[in-house]
Design a protein around this nucleic acid. Structure first.
Length: 465
RNA sequence: GGCACCAUAGCCAAGCGGUAAGGCAGAGGUCUGCAAAACCUUCAUCCCCGGUUCGAUUCCGGGUGGUGCCUCCA
């Protein structure tokens, strides 16, 4: 599989450090609020990557962190008159709720910064010991950017250009404006941990370095996140980690593009964000997932309600095909059908095309095109009873694609309320009596209850609206 | 100022050297009591100007327009 590596700015063959195993780290949420659709993109995209790698037979160790201590949590806790751990606990729970609805599989580990303070302190001590960090007189510890000559290699920035643009904050105790905090001395009332530099808490960048290296090793395969993390977050992670270990940190850096609203980046600071939680009130979040996978992950995508509606309609197209296949499998042809052979032969071709798209830097947009092509072919095929072998081949492919792309993973209620079933039966009777007016009236009643009726060869079927 | 990215039909979005996947919407048709679903048909020459090439949406140069990072941010 080819993967675009931000470090080299080109697509490269993904070759894991340990054959058959992929170790990857995805920057997770700072848990001080529900997450918005922009935050959802990396979670969905890299979940899809993880699933695809597993489909290809890799064992994937995926770590996605929760940043559960930082200024935003502290502010939120103060504003609500509660504690930082309470805020973190709440929004971690809410994260899982939304992530589940988006069919995001649980990571292998979800490390929390506060559970890795010892490792963070050890890492800071190593950096100081090697002359890459220094303790300031206020209890802060800073990383010395100029002590790491390769600084800027990920973002393509030169230290001198950065220097000229760096903001100087007189309240900080840096030796150089480029330096950044790896440990923050505690201010009164803030949560803090004992350290060699007094009470304090981890800096943001260092926690990802400490957690990723502790869980995945000093050198691991993939480090991923949003494009806005390239600088400074990931640049700083590289500097800290490689300065501390003298070894390469992550080998492939993958970054997703933004979600825009009206061609402007969606962000919490701009206030133009839409919470996934709010979209869930109106739509099955798998429609959001389909929307996100409808574009190649590195390209920016515009968000609008209309686009989610489009995705929702498209999703139902896949769902209908899935249901038609299920029905076909319940009553296959007695003997193989003459058309089975051609269809059976086409399935591996669809699969090959789908894999080719996924192998090309996770081109999910292209891969979805293959799914829809297959959907059309399948819909035609199952319009007549077919041999079970061909149907099972279609089923296996459909399941693989849907599992990897995280679509149709929600259990839908099979059971319909008795009231609706009774109406359906009454309508059937009316139709048998050619009482069309009554049949249509009942259809309207069912619609009001949230069900559509579809008449087919084998009688009428109910569908949830 | 530095570093990147993008420009394909009404709306999204792949493709990236040989004459434009797919989805949504629209039009016509098949099926249906009607509908729905499904299927069939139909709907673009790829921002502009140069250049390279037998041939460019696809490569190069120059425009124009838009975005992001350089500060917390997915």
């Amino acid at each position: 599989m080819q993967v675009y590596n931000t470090m080299t700015r080109k697509k490269e063959e993904l070759v894991p450090l340990t054959p058959g195993v992929i170790r990857m780290y995805v920057c997770g949420p700072t848990v001080y609020n529900f997450f918005h659709i922009g935050n959802a993109r990396p979670f969905v995209v890299f979940d899809t990557l993880r699933r695809y790698l597993e489909y290809k037979g890799y064992k994937v160790v995926l770590a996605q962190n929760f940043t559960d201590i930082d200024d935003k949590l502290i502010n939120r806790a103060n504003a609500e008159g509660t504690t930082v751990p309470e805020i973190a606990e709440r929004y971690i729970k809410e994260y899982y709720r939304d992530a589940d609805a988006l069919s995001i599989e649980r990571a292998t580990v979800n490390p929390r910064a506060t559970e890795h303070v010892d490792e963070i302190i050890a890492l800071v001590e190593t950096l100081i010991g090697r002359g890459h960090a220094y303790a300031a007189d206020n209890g802060d510890v800073y990383f010395s950017v100029r002590s790491y000559p390769e600084y800027g290699k990920l973002s393509g920035q030169s230290i001198d250009d950065l220097e000229s643009g760096a903001r100087i904050d007189p309240t900080e105790h840096k030796r150089d404006p480029l330096d950044f905090a790896v440990w923050k001395g505690a201010k009164p009332g803030e949560p803090s941990w004992e350290s060699p530099w007094g009470k304090g808490r981890p800096g943001w960048h260092i926690e990802c370095s400490a957690m990723s290296m502790n869980i995945l090793g000093e050198t691991f395969d993939i480090h991923a996140g949003g494009q806005d993390l390239v600088f400074p977050h990931h640049e700083n992670e590289i500097a800290q980690s490689e300065a501390a270990t003298g070894k390469p940190f992550a080998r492939y850096w993958m970054h997703n593009g933004y979600i825009n609203i009206n061609n402007e980046k969606m962000s919490k600071s701009l206030g133009n964000f839409l919470l996934v939680r709010d979209i869930a009130k109106e739509f099955d979040l798998e429609a959001v997932r389909l929307f996100l996978l409808g574009a190649q992950y590195r390209n920016p995508v515009n968000f609008s309600r209309e686009l989610i509606e489009q995705a929702d309609t498209a999703l139902s197209r896949i769902r209908t095909a899935r249901e038609r296949l299920d029905d076909a499998m319940k009553k296959p042809a007695e003997a193989p059908d003459p058309e089975d052979a051609a269809f059976l032969a086409s399935v591996p071709e669809f699969r090959a095309r789908w894999e080719e798209a996924m192998d090309d830097d996770l081109n999910t947009a292209d891969a979805l095109g293959v799914l829809f092509d297959f959907t059309r072919s399948l819909n035609s095929f199952v319009s007549e009873p077919r041999g079970i072998e061909a149907l099972e081949a279609a089923d296996a492919f459909m399941k693989d694609v849907c599992r990897v792309m995280g679509l149709l993973q929600h259990r839908r209620e099979e059971e319909f309320p008795l009231e609706a079933l009774a109406l359906l039966a009454q309508r059937g009777a009316a139709r048998a009596a050619r009482d069309w007016a009554r049949a249509d009236a009942i259809r309207e009643e069912l619609k009001a209850l949230g069900f559509a009726v579809e008449d087919g060869k084998d009688g009428a079927k109910l569908k949830r609206l």
